[in-house]
Write a protein that binds this DNA or RNA. Sequence first.
RNA 1: GGGGCGUUAGCUCAGUCGGUAGAGCAGUUGGCUUUUAACCAAUUGGUCGUGCGUUCAAGUCGCACACGCCCCA
Length: 496
Amino acid sequence: MTEENHDENKLIAQRREKLTAIRAKRVAFPNSFIKEDTSSDLIEKYDSKTKEELETLAVTAVIAGRIIRMRGPFVVLQDGNGQMQIYINNKSFLEEQAEEIKSFDLGDIIGVHGEMFKTGKGELTLRASRFELLTKSLRPLPDKHKGLTDTEMRYRQRYVDLIVNEQSRKIFQTRSRIMRFIRQYFESLDFMEVETPMMQVIPGGATARPFITHHNALDQEMFLRVAPELFLKRLVVGGFERVFELNRNFRNEGLSTRHNPEFTMLEFYQAYARYQDLMDLTEDLFRKIAIDIGGSSKVSFQGSEYDFAEPFARLSVTDSIKKYCSVADDAVFASAESVAALANSLDVNFDQNWSKGKVLMEIFDQKVEAQIDQPTFITEYPIEVSPLARRNEENPEITDRFELIIGGRELANGFSELNDPEDQAERFKEQVAQKDSGDSEAMHFDHDYVTALEYGMPPTAGEGIGIDRLVMLFTDSASIKDVLLFPHMRPQQDPT
RNA sequence: GGGGCGUUAGCUCAGUCGGUAGAGCAGUUGGCUUUUAACCAAUUGGUCGUGCGUUCAAGUCGCACACGCCCCA
């Protein structure tokens, strides 16, 4: 099967014939039409006028857009901001033009000059005096009532989804608005937006498996970043005391409703702050996003309601296990043996060689996280799973770290940064030992990062917020694919 | 990795007990021309995801595979 006739059908063939006829007469894809108005502007200005007022005003307008409905002499155009009905009665045009109007198909893009009026039923409408076909659409649009519902096609052909599904357009508009709001928020707090390498020689900043690539000129193996963390902290060493980066990370892991191989992360670092300060900042940020997006501190998500005006719960890892796994007292957390016994009794899958802290987190991940619905900061993460976080002064087994859980999903991860270069070197060594024993997610030893710390990093707190999951939360989306314009999909089967 | 569900016209979906493939929308032709999921009449359109198998006969039953969705790990 050749590409040329692949998925061709009669409907497309008919439209191609129309295009061929157009080509024979004139420039088929003109670029000279000057659009002067948008549907949303016209509605804002004139929808409140009466039929009589509009007749007196005799407003002319020039708009362009895609034909998404045809009802007798009425045509609905969709442009970047909304929709406008056009009255384009072929009886009132000369024969050649009347034929052209008849040949219009749903999906065609036209430009129209005319005068604004209101129909008998009171709908604001543009009466066409001149029109021009700007782009012939060769492919039929999905069902005009139900849109495109096939989830696979919505993801694979997002452009079609965006044409016909208003809800989908809204999600990505909201996403853009959230991104803009976050930038404004951090700039208002004197943070500086920076860009650090996405291609790294030593992948660092998170325990995750990286994508590997190769630089030909340097003949060097390189990694797509799993996190920008170590570079952002180098900038704090350099004296930029408040920095943030809002961009893509890449992790070579499975796909799910919460995971895409490339995803957007906000990371920010604030010198002379503590992790508690960032929990406060996070509450404030979520509250303000909710109000900016929905006009209220309350957000509905997958059947739950969250009020971001309320302070978030704060609970240590061990306390959360006690609460959600019916553990009576702290004695079980005392030794590695008792924690392993607890994991076994709770039916948690884990490796017998794992450390106490790692087993503890496995219990949390498998048995606790999904149960936490209302916004909750989980704190006091074990040191073994937090190789870049500051050790707690009272309890050397834990770090000054938190994660934010909402609706059973991890939204954010932050901590007071480890700025002791000797402790950091030791932590890297432990990571390398784990990597050597087969853990593909363990970190590399980053000597230059330790060197940077040796120059001195001020006490600092930093945090990462998963933007895709944040957008899911604020758009009530069940799958990460719903908030990614072009989610990763397996290639379609070749029909040959 | 395991389990469940799905894949039928361009789109949205029916398809009974295994017995010649259906509707709405879109399209085409004509009518109507201030409509609102416009309307009226006629009409075109199918490798039923792919491949094997069972059967006189498979969209339908079985197996395998592909892709997707959901759940579990």
